[in-house]
Nucleic acid binder design. Structure first.
Lengths: 132, 132
DNA sequence: CTTAACCTTTACGTTAACGTAAACTTCTCT
DNA sequence: AGAGAAGTTTACGTTAACGTAAAGGTTAAG
């Protein structure tokens, strides 16, 4: 019974999304689950793709940008031209991710500085009034 | 002449946004430039805030989430309660940022793996036909 | 057999984050 | 004075990414 495919509700639990979201992604050609009759079944490949979608969203990429990147999950019998294009797209995404990483690191430092200042202010609060 | 305030168009250049965007952020109380007659002037503080907005957007935060964080830029004569709340909010954001950082790092690794595979495929392409 | 759980399609609704157009002021330059 | 550049307010429009409701098919349990 424990096949290596997931139902739509299992996917929903796993990625904390609604069925609507998964169908929406399918409509946008980000996912293409197989069918058992009417029902959708998500293979390991779809799970992998959904993983990327999930991460991509958290990093602020649009679904369209994510869709481009997902080409890397095919890599079937592609034309050389297409294969190279996919590769180039991947490289660009990689560069963007690395940029964001740097930006993120310095943002974390900035926020830590702000928090330190905030903490100082809290600790040096004027002891209120005098009545105690 | 070179005051330490920026006009709206200077802000637009600096952050690569339209005037509409800056006015929109003002409407949402993310920014509050001073006025010279009708015209908006952005002080160093507003520039600092806009810096955060810009980063926040790139990391996938909503404007509402960013607005909360921006409280850290006031730190004026706040009530202790409010100050602590602001501090807590900041801590949560910091934790989220750190999570995203980890996620980002492993995503970069994953993408690099995919790209390596893709590169392999390109290099091992069947030399087409034979006619040459 | 029928009820419930789970799935489906179709289609209109909603929210965030701006875009865009119209009509007006203010300043500077010639 | 007249033209242009840069700014303003007001308000309707747009797009992405789903939410939500209606109406119905399928399968296991009682």
């Amino acid at each position: 019974m424990t096949n290596d495919t997931l139902t739509i509700s299992e996917m929903c639990v796993r990625f904390d999304v609604t069925p609507r979201t998964l169908r929406f992604y399918e409509d946008k050609e980000l996912l293409s689950p197989i069918r058992d009759g009417q029902k959708r079944l998500y293979t390991k490949r779809e799970v992998g793709r959904m993983q990327w979608i999930s991460h991509g969203k958290r990093f602020g990429f649009s679904l369209e940008e994510i869709r481009e990147l997902l080409e890397l999950y095919y890599l079937g019998d592609q034309q050389e031209t297409q294969l190279r294009r996919t590769y180039e797209t991947g490289l660009k995404h990689l560069a963007t991710l690395k940029d964001k990483k740097e930006e993120l690191i310095s943002s974390i430092e900035d926020l830590e500085t702000l928090l330190t200042q905030c903490k100082d202010q809290i600790e040096n609060l004027p002891l209120r009034a005098a009545a105690e």
